[in-house]
């Protein structure tokens, strides 16, 4: 495949929305991308009559929608995805082969592994509450098992880690801290330990932090890494849109423009409320 690929399809005016992740796609290529990189999100409700209508009317690809409709009768889910991916050359034949292998491998995973992958995808798409709910269910069910082997402990540790990430994204510091602690206890992964200390640092619990430092006997290098990462994050935040909006709001307040200050803060709060709502959709 070349470095510059000619686009041979049209974009739809209206998107198609995958309800489970609230992902909108506007073109054939975006549809392929979503299918290819989100195997855990695919299920028997992915290819619907509504999707076929969208492919036919918005993308003007009635031939493709007909091909899929014919294959639906065979009820072989993977062949439907193969039909979509192979219709144009957005993915090569070799890449489609890789997808088919990955799809087959996914079917062989345990139910917990499948659920985790699904939750990981939701986490990636910022559906933190939905992801958390799945992780929590896995943790509860696995927690009932006695005599877990090492692999299972690591798996469960990773579940707690991701639960903590979801909570941290929603500013639930105390709960996130607890779960990072649990995660490290199970998976012994320094990433979980780092995140634990990040939370302590961000929640300004200096005393607790010092006590924990002694317990874990950590090197100075470890804390220097944490400090570096915090500083990098601070720089990154200052480039973000939300930070600039906040700066403008503070500027307004400092210059006595309270109406503008309130308006800006209200707009930011509305945005966060909407993002929080979307996590559950």
């Amino acid at each position: 495949m070349g470095n510059v690929i000619i686009c041979q399809t049209q974009e739809g005016k209206k998107p198609y929305i995958f309800e489970n992740a609230r992902i909108e796609v506007y073109s054939y290529e975006e549809l392929c991308y979503y299918i290819y990189y989100n195997i855990p999100m695919l299920d028997e409700n992915t290819i619907t009559e509504k999707l076929l209508q969208w492919i036919s009317e918005e993308l003007n690809l009635s031939e493709l929608s007909e091909k899929i409709r014919c294959r639906m009768e065979s009820q072989n889910e993977v062949s439907l995805y193969q039909t979509i991916l192979g219709y144009r050359s957005y993915f090569t034949k070799q890449e489609i082969e890789v997808f088919l292998v990955s799809f087959e491998e996914y079917q062989l995973l345990t139910p917990f592994e499948k659920q985790k992958k699904k939750a990981d995808s939701l986490l990636l798409y910022k559906r933190y509450m939905k992801a958390f709910h799945i992780y929590e269910t896995i943790a509860m069910q696995m927690g009932e098992k006695e005599n877990m082997d090492q692999e299972e402990k690591i798996f469960l540790g990773n579940i707690y880690h991701n639960m903590a990430v979801c909570q941290g994204k929603n500013l639930e510091w105390e709960q996130a801290k607890q779960n990072f602690r649990k995660a490290y206890a199970l998976n012994k992964n320094t990433e979980s330990l780092k995140e634990y200390f990040f939370i302590l640092k961000l929640s300004a619990k200096e005393e607790e932090m010092q006590e924990e430092e002694k317990k874990f006997c950590l090197s100075e290098e470890f804390f220097l890494d944490i400090q570096d990462e915090i500083e990098d994050s601070e720089k990154e935040i200052k480039g973000m849109e939300v930070y600039k909006k906040f700066e403008y709001a503070i500027y307004n307040k400092e210059h006595g423009k309270y109406f503008d200050y309130s308006r800006r803060i209200d707009a930011m709060l509305e945005q966060w409320k909407m993002e929080l709502k979307e996590q559950w959709i």
């Binding site: 070349g2 000619i6 041979q8």
Partner: peptide, 28 residues
Amino acid sequence: YDGTKEQMVLIAQGGKEWFAVKGVISVF
């Protein structure tokens, strides 16, 4: 790359008056 091989793909065909020579394509 047009799906089969790498080759020249036309954006605008010449041979016309300047105001009639225009075209648009999309690429990835």
